[in-house]
């Protein structure tokens, strides 16, 4: 509880990422409809929602990997749509990203993976980089694994290694896509603790996408609940628990979707989008 309010005080609630009326689509198919919210500097924002609700798409837009059809994404005051490549590179050096499946470079060892951003973007000499890599791996509890290849690590270790790589350039904003999906509860809890530790230690702005309720409530300062490409609720974990929104309640209470009732409904669903 105390930790939760701390970053808020430190940064005075500046906006780190502003999302304004963003729409995104894959081809004809619109997957995000009119999304608007702010992530404040130093807070941990959790984006919660079912599979296919558009969380990953939203996160990719925040990192500038995908361009919105309309609307704006403002990161530290820059509109991502129109940042020239040089400034985009500078901006991205302030990002740390842990992808859904880790996205570690399979042809490099864990040590090389973690070292890559520093090697490419700084002039530090090899021994300094080595120390830095050990430090980052130590931080995520993976010391001694420098020479392993990603394929030799378990799922949880890969996620940790991805976090270590995300931390190399001392980012200001950390993005996590499903950090604990597919991990057993103990390992998943370990990742949650790691995220909390990073927040305490560095006061980073953290955006976490997840569908795991327990993990969301453990780490979030504020959260967004998404459903079919829309934000249906936004607020602190306490406010969320008190929400009366039917879809939010359904998500939190783990109630399955209702079967479509009656023959007409079934017929409608089976023949939808068919040209007969």
């Amino acid at each position: 509880m105390q930790e939760r309010n701390e970053p808020e005080r430190k940064t005075g609630g500046q906006v780190a990422i502003g999302v304004r009326n963003v729409r995104m689509s894959y081809g004809e198919f619109e997957v995000l409809h009119d999304i608007t919210f702010d992530v404040k500097a130093g807070e941990t924002m959790v984006i919660l929602g079912g599979s296919g609700s558009g969380k990953t798409t939203l996160l990719r837009a925040l990192m500038g990997l995908e361009k919105p059809v309309s609307g704006a994404i403002l990161v530290r005051g820059h509109d991502l749509c129109c940042v020239p490549p040089k400034e985009m590179a500078e901006l991205r050096k302030k990002f740390g990203v842990s992808f859904q499946d880790g996205a570690l470079f399979g042809s490099m060892t864990i040590g090389e993976n973690v070292a890559l951003p520093v090697r490419e973007h700084t002039r530090l000499d090899d021994s300094t980089i080595k120390v830095l890599v050990r430090l980052k791996l130590e931080e995520v509890g993976l010391s001694g694994f420098e020479d392993y290849y990603p394929a030799q690590l378990s799922g949880g270790m890969k996620k940790r290694a991805a976090v270590a790589r995300a931390l190399t350039l001392d980012p200001e904003i950390l993005f996590f896509d499903e950090p604990s999906a597919g991990l057993d509860p103990i390992v998943a809890a370990g990742i949650d603790e790691l995220i909390l530790k990073l927040k305490r230690a560095f006061g980073m702005t953290i955006v976490v996408v997840t569908h795991e309720l327990a993990s969301a409530f453990r780490i979030a300062d504020r959260m967004i609940v998404m459903d079919r490409g829309k934000i249906i609720a936004i607020g602190t974990p306490e406010e969320m628990k008190a929400s009366r929104h039917p879809r939010v309640r359904q998500f939190f209470d783990r109630v399955p979707d209702q079967e479509v009732s009656g023959d007409d409904g079934l017929l409608e669903r089976l023949t939808r989008n068919l040209r007969i």
Partner: peptide, 17 residues
């Protein structure tokens, strides 16, 4: 191609590479 499928190309981009 396998780097693309494994999001490694996205990872490069987010590292400003």
């Amino acid at each position: 191609g396998s780097m693309k499928v494994n999001s490694e190309l996205d990872a490069l981009e987010t590292m400003a590479l």
